[in-house]
C-alpha cells in the first residue's frame, strides 16, 4: 500500500566529502500528496540530501528514484537500474541525471536555504523565467518569437497570466514590477516558492522555507504550503521551525550525523524521547523541558 503511493524513493544513499561522511546509508520515501519533512540538528546532512535529490551533488553511493506521473514499481526500477539508463517509462534515477534534467524531466523543483532569486529581474520576470521550457517551445526556439508570431504572443500572455495568478496567491501582485532583490525578506521567500511552482513540479523541495520569518509570516507560509499540497504537488521540506514541521507535515524523517534515527508521523516523532535527546543533544533530565517546548 505504502509502496503504491511512493513518489520519491531514496535508498541507501551515502555522500562523502574527502574523509567526511555527510550522509550515511540513508533511506526514506516521500509519498504522493504528502508533506514530508526532513529534520535534524545543524550539520545533520539535510541540505546535502537535498542537493543529492536535486542533482547538485552526486551521491557517493545509493539510488534515488522518482516517478513523477505514476508509481515506483520495484521490478521496473530494478530493470532500469540494471539497464544503466537514466530513466524509462516515467521512472527516473535521479543520481544519474544532471541537475537541470531532474527539474525538467523528473519534475522536482526546489528553493534554496540562502534565497536565490534573480535579484536584478522583476518578480514577474522571475516567474516567467521559470516557465522557460513551454515558452521556448512556443517561440520556436526563438525563430517565431523573433518575427513576433501570434502563437508566441498567446503563449507569453498565458505565461503572464499564470505568473499573475501566483503573484496574487502570495500577495505580491502589487509588486510584480519591482526587482526581486528589493523585496523584503519574507516576500522573497514566498516569491522563490512561487517561482519553483511556475516550473510545474510534481515534487517541490523547500530548504528551510520558514527561516527568518516572523510568526505571522510563518503562519501564512503554512497556509500556502498546505494549499500547494491540496492542489496536487507533493512537498519535501527541511525545516528547523518545529511549529511549521509539526503543524503541516504528514510524515517526518529525522536525521542525525547523516543517519536516519526516526521516520514516522509527527505524533510518533514527537513522542520519541530518543529522537528528542539525540536531536537536541541534551541530557535525559532536560528532555522533559524540551518536550514541553515543542508541545509534546
Amino acid at each position: 500500500m505504502a509502496a503504491a503511493q511512493t513518489l520519491l524513493s531514496v535508498e541507501h544513499i551515502s555522500m562523502r566529502f574527502g574523509g567526511l561522511t555527510a550522509v550515511d546509508d540513508l533511506s526514506f520515501d516521500a509519498r504522493r500528496g504528502d508533506i514530508t519533512a526532513l529534520i535534524g540538528p545543524n550539520g545533520a546532512g539535510k541540505t546535502t540530501v537535498f542537493n543529492c535529490i536535486t542533482g547538485f551533488y552526486k551521491p557517493t553511493s545509493g539510488r534515488i528514484s522518482m516517478a513523477p506521473n505514476g508509481v515506483i514499481d520495484p521490478t521496473a526500477l530494478d530493470a532500469l537500474t540494471r539497464s544503466g539508463a537514466r530513466g524509462a517509462n516515467g521512472l527516473h534515477l535521479l543520481e544519474r541525471m544532471p541537475d537541470h534534467e531532474i527539474a525538467r524531466d523528473a519534475r522536482v523543483a526546489r528553493t534554496f536555504q540562502n534565497i536565490r532569486l534573480f535579484s536584478g529581474m522583476t518578480a514577474l520576470e522571475n516567474l516567467i523565467v521559470a516557465q522557460h521550457r513551454p515558452l521556448m517551445r512556443a517561440s520556436g526556439f526563438s525563430l517565431f518569437g523573433l518575427i513576433g508570431a501570434p502563437s508566441y504572443r498567446a503563449a507569453e500572455q498565458a505565461a503572464k497570466d499564470k505568473a499573475r495568478g501566483w503573484l496574487e496567491r502570495i500577495g505580491l501582485a502589487a509588486r510584480a514590477d519591482d526587482p526581486a532583490g528589493a523585496l523584503p525578506y519574507g516576500d522573497q521567500r514566498r516569491l522563490e516558492i512561487a517561482r519553483a511552482m511556475c516550473a510545474d513540479p510534481v515534487l517541490l523541495c523547500l530548504d528551510e522555507p520558514a527561516a527568518g520569518l516572523n510568526p505571522r509570516e510563518s503562519a501564512e507560509l503554512n497556509a500556502l504550503l498546505r494549499s500547494i499540497r491540496d492542489d496536487g504537488t507533493s512537498l519535501l521540506l527541511i525545516e528547523h521551525d518545529m511549529s511549521v514541521v509539526m503543524e503541516i507535515s504528514d510524515h517526518v524523517v529525522v536525521l542525525d550525523y547523516g543517519r536516519k534515527i526516526a521516520d514516522g508521523t509527527p505524533a510518533e516523532i514527537r513522542n520519541d524521547p530518543s529522537v528528542i535527546a539525540a536531536y537536541l543533544g541534551v541530557p535525559d533530565e532536560e528532555v522533559a523541558n524540551v518536550e514541553q517546548e515543542i508541545g509534546a
Binding site: 536535486t54 542533482g55 547538485f56 541537475d99 537541470h100 534534467e101 527539474a103 525538467r104 523543483a109 526546489r110 534554496f112 536565490r116 532569486l117 534573480f118 535579484s119 536584478g120 529581474m121 520576470e125 516567467i128 523565467v129 521559470a130 522557460h132 521550457r133 515558452l135 521556448m136 517561440s139 526556439f141 526563438s142 518569437g145 523573433l146 517561482r195 519553483a196 516550473a199
Partner: peptide, 30 residues
C-alpha cells in the same frame, strides 16, 4: 536582434544565467 531576443525566453534565460546560474539549473534550464 539583441533587443528582440532580450524579450524572448532565450534572452531572459541569458539574463537569468547572469543573475544566478544555480537557480537557473534548479528550474530546469540547460
Amino acid at each position: 536582434v539583441t533587443l528582440r531576443l532580450r524579450r524572448l525566453p532565450i534572452g531572459r534565460a541569458w539574463e537569468a544565467l547572469r543573475e544566478d546560474e544555480i537557480a537557473c539549473r534548479s528550474l530546469g534550464l540547460d
